[in-house]
Design a protein around this nucleic acid. Structure first.
Lengths: 193, 193
DNA sequence: GTCTATAGGCAGATAGAC
DNA sequence: GTCTATCTGCCTATAGAC
C-alpha cells in the first residue's frame, strides 16, 4: 500500500481514463487500449469483463482521487476562498492536456451509459456540490465570502461553470481561457467586493 | 421559401440533430436515422455522402437558427438585461427534453471530429460570445448592467456557465436545476445590485 | 495472466437496378 | 430518390491452449 502499482489493471485504467476524457465513452474501444499497452484484446477482458465494468472502475477511481484531494484541503488551514481557488486548480490540472473532466464527459454521454455507471456519475456531482456548499457556508459564516442565494445553489453554479469552462475551452485548447473563466466565476459568484 | 419543407433531407437533419444532442456524434449511426425514417441506409447516403458532411450540415443549420434568434432580439426593444435572460431561455428550450446544446456536445466530441466540423463548432462559440459581449457592453454603457472585467471575458463566462449548466443538469433530467443556475449566473456575473 | 482463434454483430460506405 | 445487395473493417466478447 502506497507502493507504485505498475499492475496491468492499473495501466489499463490509466489508458482508458485518458481515452474517455479525450474521446468520450463511445469514442474509444478495447482495441485502442490493448494496442497501446501491447497486450491483446482478450487479456483486457480478463481484467475487466466488459466495457461497462471498466467504466464503473474508471469513475470509482476518479471520484476517490477527487475526494482525497478535497479531504486534504479540509485538513489544511486554507481559507474558504483559498479552497475555492484550489478547487478550480484541480479542474485546471485535469484540463492541462486537453482532457475533459471524466464525469463531465460522461454527463454528455449519459443517455448511452449503463445504469451502474449513471449512478456513479450522479454521486460524483452530488459529492462535489456538497463539499462546495460546506465551503461556501463556512465562508459566509465567517464573512470572508458573500453571495446571493443558498450555498447549495451557488455550489451547483460553480460546478456547472467549471465543467462548462472546460468543455468550451477544449476547441480552443487554451488553458488560459479556462483559468480566466474560473477566476471570474469565483469572483462573481462568491466574492463580490 | 418560407414554406414548410417536409423534404427527406430536412427530416434526416431533424432526426440526426436529436440523436447527436442526446447521444453524441459517436453515439449514433446512419442505421439509427434510416430506421426511424423508414428509409434505407443507402437513401441516406444519397442526401449526405458521409457522416462528416451530415455533421457539417447539422452545425450549419443549428448555428443559423441561433443567429436568427439573436438577430430577432437585436431588432426588438429588449433591454440588455432582458436580452441576457432571453438568451438563457434559448438554452432552456434546447434542454427541455434532455437534449444537450448541439455544439456543446460536439465540443465534448471535439477530438474525434473531422476538421470541417471543428471549424464550424469554433465559429458557433465565437459568434455567441461576440453577441453577448455587445449586449454586455451596451448594458455597461447605459448603466443597466454592472460587471468586473471585459465584456468579452464575461461573455465567455456566460457561455461556459450555460453550457455547463446544461451538461450537469442532464443526469438529473431537471429543467428547474438548469433554470436556477442560469438565473444565478446572470445575476452574479452581470447584475450585481 | 496472456495468448490464438474465432464468433456475431454493427459500423460507414458503394454499385447498380428501378 | 429509393431500393437490394454487398463489401470491408471494426466492435465487444468468448473458448480453450499455454
Amino acid at each position: 500500500m502506497g507502493r507504485m502499482e505498475g499492475g496491468t489493471a492499473t495501466q489499463v485504467l490509466d489508458v482508458a481514463e485518458r481515452l474517455v476524457q479525450e474521446r468520450g465513452f463511445n469514442g474509444f474501444s478495447y482495441a485502442d487500449v490493448s494496442r497501446e499497452l501491447g497486450i491483446t484484446n482478450a487479456a483486457l477482458h480478463y481484467h475487466f469483463p466488459g466495457k461497462a465494468e471498466l467504466g464503473e472502475a474508471l469513475i470509482e477511481r476518479y471520484a476517490a482521487r477527487f475526494a482525497e484531494a478535497l479531504s486534504a484541503l479540509d485538513h489544511s488551514d486554507a481559507s474558504p476562498r483559498d479552497k475555492l481557488e484550489a478547487y478550480a486548480r484541480l479542474y485546471a490540472a485535469v484540463f492541462r492536456d486537453n482532457r475533459m473532466c471524466l464525469c463531465g464527459m460522461l454527463a454528455a454521454d449519459y443517455l448511452t451509459l449503463p445504469d451502474p455507471m449513471r449512478t456513479r456519475v450522479v454521486a460524483f456531482f452530488d459529492e462535489n456540490e456538497a463539499w462546495l456548499a460546506r465551503v461556501l457556508a463556512a465562508g459566509r459564516a465567517d464573512k470572508t465570502l458573500r453571495f446571493h442565494g443558498s450555498a447549495r445553489s451557488v455550489a451547483r453554479t460553480l460546478v456547472s461553470g467549471l465543467e462548462g469552462a472546460m468543455l468550451v475551452a477544449r476547441p480552443y485548447a487554451d488553458l488560459e481561457r479556462f483559468r480566466a473563466t474560473a477566476r471570474l466565476l469565483i469572483d462573481g459568484l462568491a466574492v463580490e467586493p
